[in-house]
Simulated scan of single mutants.
Amino acid sequence: MAGTVLSVGIAFCTATLAASFVTAGAAAAFGQRMAGVADAAALAAADTASGAVTGIPCDRAAEVASAAGADIASCSLDGLVATVGIASSFLRLPASATARAGPPPS
């Protein structure tokens, strides 16, 4: 009987650890995805600000972010440099990322 209880306890601990590691891995992957979406949105805004693409820079960034399932939290332009912040949620927890794009400094 004691061996059965010990086996069940070990199985439960192993399952709990596995679920924790899977959740942590998924959160890390989601963070990388958010960074990529922020980069793409900032590049879209910078391209629009430079005239390479038509439209309004922050509107273009919002289109790119919404296509990836995120919302624009902030968008600012300093000349041709665009800084874009996006927001989303992972397992009902808020997540955000910020990126900057533009020509290299001279």
Score class of each variant (00 low, 15 high):
Val37Trp: 03
Gly36Ala: 13
Thr14Ser: 15
Ala27Phe: 12
Ser96Cys: 08
Ala62Thr: 06
Ala52Leu: 15
Arg92Asn: 15
Val53Ser: 07
Phe30Gln: 09
Thr48Ile: 07
Gly85Met: 00
Ala46His: 01
Ala101Phe: 10
Ser89Pro: 10
Ile72Ser: 00
Ala73Arg: 07
Leu80Trp: 00
Thr23Val: 14
Gly3Gln: 13
Ser89Ile: 11
Ala67Phe: 11
Ala38Glu: 01
Gly9Thr: 15
Met1Pro: 09
Leu93Arg: 14
Arg92Thr: 14
Ala73Leu: 14
Ala70Phe: 09
Ala95Trp: 09
Pro105Trp: 14
Val64Asp: 00
Thr54Asn: 10
Ala97Thr: 03
Ala41Val: 06
Ser20Asp: 06
Ala29Val: 11
Gly79Asp: 04
Gly55Tyr: 05
Ala38Pro: 02
Thr4Met: 15
Pro104Ser: 13
Phe12Gly: 15
Gly69Arg: 02
Ala46Gln: 03
Gly9Tyr: 14
Ser76Pro: 05
Pro104Thr: 09
Ser74Pro: 11
Met34Pro: 02
Thr48Glu: 05
Ala40Cys: 05
Gly102Pro: 09
Ala49Leu: 05
Asp78Pro: 02
Asp59Thr: 08
Pro104Met: 09
Ala82Trp: 01
Ala95Asp: 01
Ala41Leu: 06
Thr14Cys: 15
Ala15Tyr: 07
Ala28Arg: 12
Ala18Ser: 14
Ala82His: 03
Ala27Gln: 08
Leu80Lys: 03
Ala101Ile: 08
Ser66Ile: 06
Asp47Ser: 13
Asp39Glu: 07
Ile56Phe: 10
Ser96Met: 10
Cys75Val: 03
Asp71Pro: 01
Thr23Cys: 14
Gly69Phe: 11
Arg60Lys: 10
Ser7Leu: 15
Ser74Asp: 11
Thr83Met: 06
Arg60Phe: 06
Val8Met: 13
Ala101Arg: 06
Thr54Cys: 02
Ala27Leu: 09
Thr48Pro: 00
Phe21Glu: 01
Ala29Gln: 11
Val64Cys: 03
Asp78Arg: 07
Ser88Pro: 01
Arg60Cys: 01
Ala38Gly: 03
Ala46Cys: 03
Ala67Thr: 08
Val64Asn: 01
Asp47Asn: 12
Ala44Thr: 07
Ala18Ile: 14
Ala24Thr: 13
Met34His: 02
Ile10Cys: 14
Ala97Arg: 00
Asp78Glu: 14
Ala62Ser: 04
Gly102Met: 13
Met1Tyr: 10
Arg100Val: 08
Met1Leu: 14
Ser96Ile: 04
Gly25Met: 13
Val64Pro: 02
Val22Ile: 15
Gln32Glu: 12
Ala11Phe: 14
Arg60Ser: 05
Gly85Ser: 05
Ala82Thr: 01
Met1Ile: 13
Cys58Pro: 00
Thr48Asp: 02
Pro94Gln: 06
Asp47Trp: 10
Gly31Thr: 09
Cys75Trp: 01
Ala101Ser: 11
Val64Lys: 00
Arg100Ile: 06
Ser7Lys: 09
Ser20His: 12
Ala26Ile: 10
Ala27Ser: 14
Val64Ala: 04
Ala29Trp: 09
Ala2Pro: 07
Ala52Lys: 12
Glu63Thr: 10
Ser88Gln: 10
Asp39Trp: 08
Gly102Leu: 12
Ser89Glu: 12
Ser66Gln: 08
Glu63Asn: 04
Val81Asn: 02
Leu43Tyr: 01
Val22Gln: 08
Glu63Asp: 09
Ser20Asn: 13
Ala40His: 03
